[in-house]
Write a protein that binds this DNA or RNA. Structure first.
Lengths: 151, 151
DNA sequence: GTGAATACCTAATTAAATTAGGCATCGCCT
DNA sequence: AGGCGATGCCTAATTTAATTAGGTATTCAC
C-alpha cells in the first residue's frame, strides 16, 4: 500500500516540503508528472495530512512550555474538552487510558500566564503540571526511519 | 520584531505551506517579491524552522501511540537520552522540571512492540506509560491565534 | 541637507508545475 | 489464447509561479 518510492518521497518532504518535483523525480528515478501523481494520491489517501511550516514558539514569544495532565471531574469531561479546544495556548492534546484524562502541551509567555490558564480549568478538573526545560530532545514526526531500519 | 503581515503569512503557511507567493501577496497586500523577501528573512531568523509535511502515523502502520514518562536512574541520564535519540519510534521528547525526567511520545505498531521498546530502557530508568486512545483533541502548532485573540 | 539603509514596487527572465497524449504491462474475463 | 480495461509510467507542450534586476519613496543618522 505504500511502496519504497512513496516512503522515499515522504522522507524527503518531511525534511523539506519545498523540494521541487524535478529534484524529487531524480531522487526516486521517475519523471516529475509521475511524482506529482504519487503526491496527489498520498494526499488523497490521507497519508500526507498537510503541507505546513514549523514555527519556533519562542519567536512568537512563547518562552515557556508545560505538559499538563488534566483529569476532568465527574460529568465535566465535555466542558473540559471544549475548553482545551478553544484556548489557543494549548498545543497537541491526547486522551490517554487509565483514569480518563488528557495530556496536553501548553505554550505560554510567562509563569503568570500558565497559572492564569490553569485557573480557568481548576474547578472542572484535577491537573498536574510539568514545566519543560531546555530544548526538546527530539521533535515531532512519526518515525519514518523505523520502517526501514531495525530498532 | 514580527509585524502584522508576518503573522498573517505564518498563519496562512501553517495551514498550507504550498500557498503561492502570488496568493500570499494578495492576502497581505504586497507584491510577490516582497513576500518572498519576508519569508526568506523569517527563515533566516529562525522563526520558520522548516517547511515540512504532516504524515498520518496510522498510514505508516503505527496504530498505537503512548506517552511515556522516563526517569533515568542516577548516573544514567546520558545513556537514556542517547537511547531516546536513537530509537526511531520516539517522537517528540521534552525534559521537564521536578525530578529530572523526560516525557516522550512513542509510535508503535502493537502493544508487543511497545513492551519491547520499554524493556530496552527498563534497567536504566523508571518509566510510566499511558496509552493514547482515539484521535488527538488538538494537534501540534504553537498558538498563532493566541497572539491576536484574547484568551 | 545629504548619504545610507529599508522596504517596497514593476517588468523581464528563469524555473517549476501541469496538462495532454501515448505506450507498455498486468490481471481478468470470455 | 485473445482482447479489454485499468495502472503507471513516459515525453513534449503549455501554463503558472518564483526569481532577478533595476528603480523609487521614506526614514534615520550624521
Amino acid at each position: 500500500m505504500l511502496d519504497e518510492l512513496d516512503r522515499k518521497l515522504l522522507e524527503i518532504l518531511v525534511k523539506d516540503s519545498r523540494t521541487s518535483l524535478k529534484v524529487l523525480a531524480q531522487q526516486v528515478g521517475l519523471s516529475s508528472p509521475s511524482v506529482s501523481e504519487r503526491l496527489r494520491r498520498l494526499e488523497e489517501r490521507g497519508v500526507i495530512r498537510a503541507f505546513t511550516i514549523e514555527i519556533d514558539p519562542q519567536a512568537l514569544g512563547f518562552s515557556l512550555q508545560a505538559i499538563v495532565r488534566i483529569r476532568p471531574l465527574p460529568g465535566k469531561l465535555h466542558i473540559v474538552q471544549k475548553l482545551i479546544e478553544e484556548i489557543p495556548e494549548f498545543g497537541e492534546c491526547d486522551k490517554v487510558t487509565g483514569d480518563d484524562c488528557f495530556v496536553a502541551r501548553l505554550f505560554v509567555r510567562s509563569i503568570g500566564e500558565l497559572d492564569h490558564l490553569l485557573d480557568r480549568i481548576a474547578d472542572k478538573a484535577e491537573t498536574s503540571t510539568a514545566i519543560i526545560k531546555g530544548q526538546p530532545i527530539r521533535r515531532r514526526p512519526p518515525p519514518l526511519e523505523a520502517l526501514t531500519g531495525r530498532s
